[in-house]
Simulated scan of single mutants.
Amino acid sequence: MPVTSKTQTHLTSAAIPTRDAFFEPLFARQSAWPLIEPGPGDAELELIFDAALRAPDHGRLRPWRFAFIRGEARVDLGEILIDVAAARQPGTPRSSHENRREKAFAAPVIVALGASIVAGGPIPELEQMLSVGAATMNMLNAIHALGYGGFWATGIDTYDEKLKAALDFEPDDKLLGFLFIGTPKNQERTAFRPPRAQHFREWLGRTSI
């Protein structure tokens, strides 16, 4: 029976599943590169995007602003990437930036990760950007659960105002990176996970005043 808000119960330590249908894919998720066809279709993208909209959202500000690019639109994206690279280096010939076009075809689907920040209010801007990060992580988990690969990248284009404007984000929006989605070319790669003890500790209360 599916667990709902009405039927959910706490599990005893003895009953906590470690490798069930939920935890197995979660523990196996990793960044995948390079990414090739096929990419997710419309129905799968809806699942991925719906997962994003379940991210924590302090103040219900809904700061998530995502633009996804696929198909022939990647041709225009490639031209834009060349244009903004040339604008960053005035005096260089546009042809010298042709390699930038490759980024537009690095995956079947590319999601530009934007944040619409409410400044000066009670919710810190950092918390709003963290909500976009949480939404992106939800997408990465959903991508993996559907059998695809995802790669979250930033780089110089992320912080280029001309690129942000070309992708039709609002002037006050922040671009936080790009999520590349497709089928992993290398299916054999396994991710290293560090020991828990290096990153988690139990705080046992105050030891001194």
Rank of each mutant, 00 (worst) to 15 (best):
L204R: 09
D76T: 13
H10W: 12
P25G: 01
T12F: 01
T207M: 07
D168S: 07
A145S: 13
P17W: 05
A153P: 04
R101W: 08
L163Q: 05
D160N: 15
K6G: 10
R65G: 12
V109W: 05
L113F: 05
R206S: 07
F66W: 06
Q8V: 11
F192V: 10
R206Q: 11
T158M: 07
E72L: 07
K6S: 14
Q198L: 14
I181M: 05
R100E: 15
L45A: 04
R189K: 05
M129F: 02
G149I: 02
L130A: 08
T12P: 04
A43N: 12
N138F: 12
R70F: 14
L175P: 08
I181Q: 03
D20Q: 00
W152R: 00
G182I: 03
R189N: 04
S116D: 13
E102T: 12
W33S: 14
W152G: 02
V75S: 07
A73N: 10
T7V: 04
A166T: 00
R189T: 05
H144I: 03
P2D: 13
R94W: 09
A87E: 14
A14Q: 15
G59H: 02
A135C: 09
P171K: 11
F23K: 00
D42F: 09
P34C: 05
I209N: 12
G91E: 13
T92G: 11
R94P: 11
V3G: 10
A51P: 11
E98G: 09
G147C: 02
I80W: 01
T207Y: 02
K162E: 15
P25E: 00
L146F: 08
F180V: 00
L179D: 02
K174I: 09
A166K: 05
W64T: 10
P195K: 12
S95P: 06
R193K: 15
T154H: 08
R206E: 11
A21G: 01
Q128N: 10
I117Y: 05
I123E: 01
P184E: 01
E127H: 09
M139I: 00
D168R: 12
F66N: 00
A153Q: 12
M139L: 02
G121I: 06
L26I: 02
G205I: 15
E24L: 07
A142Y: 08
R19D: 15
R19E: 15
T190L: 13
M1Y: 08
L26H: 04
T12N: 10
S116I: 13
A51T: 06
R94K: 09
Q30C: 14
W64Y: 10
